[in-house]
Design a protein around this nucleic acid. Sequence first.
DNA 1: CTCATCCATAACTCTCTGGTTATTGATCTG
DNA 2: CAGATCAATAACCAGAGAGTTATGGATGAG
Lengths: 107, 107
Amino acid sequence: MPDSHDMLFRTLADPTRRAIFERLCRDGEQTVGALTARAGVSQPAVSKHLGVLKQAGLVRDRHQGRQTHYCAQPGALSPLIDWTSQMAGFWEARFDDLEDLLKRMDQ
Amino acid sequence: MPDSHDMLFRTLADPTRRAIFERLCRDGEQTVGALTARAGVSQPAVSKHLGVLKQAGLVRDRHQGRQTHYCAQPGALSPLIDWTSQMAGFWEARFDDLEDLLKRMDQ
DNA sequence: CTCATCCATAACTCTCTGGTTATTGATCTG
DNA sequence: CAGATCAATAACCAGAGAGTTATGGATGAG
């Protein structure tokens, strides 16, 4: 069972994909065509990236006629935030341990 | 010019590498041998991962005799935190815009 | 109905990278 | 000094994945 961090980090590791997500965060809902126009890669490539982003829960799609609108789901970033603060937390915890140790040594 | 986000995301995308970093955050400074013992991959693989982590600024090394000690530098995660909150920020800004719009429509 | 447009999928290529084993350099030990 | 241990590097391999072109299926327009 690959944890959610894994999918999240792997999904956001690609610059093109991250740019698409950023764009959706900045400017809101976009059609595939609009995203393709600025992505610098072909339309199938954009569709594939959107598929990966959707799989990771980072975007939602909405079909309207023959076009598909995608919008960002920034809430899906929370595991990433959790992980980051956990790492920082471990760091501080160990720092506190060191402080305790120094205090005890000081006595 | 690949921004620092890029290197950071790419570095943390690999599960083995991320596990090594997590371990250094949790348990503090470790030798290559100690890390290899729990990494599930060969020593050269661990050394390569540590090289990548170091390149990204996520770890520091300290040579002592014939062994090398590595420790995490969680401060290097800050661009990642910045990026994440920026994405969330864009989201909220657009939400505020929507609120403004609705307010104006309400008048 | 016919043609055009939009998006997704298929099939393929090519590069990148994470893994391996083998080796070397350096340091500790006897 | 000789042998052993630790970590880094070299050389290589295989799989993943990001890109392409080609195609198909569905919807809108004339």
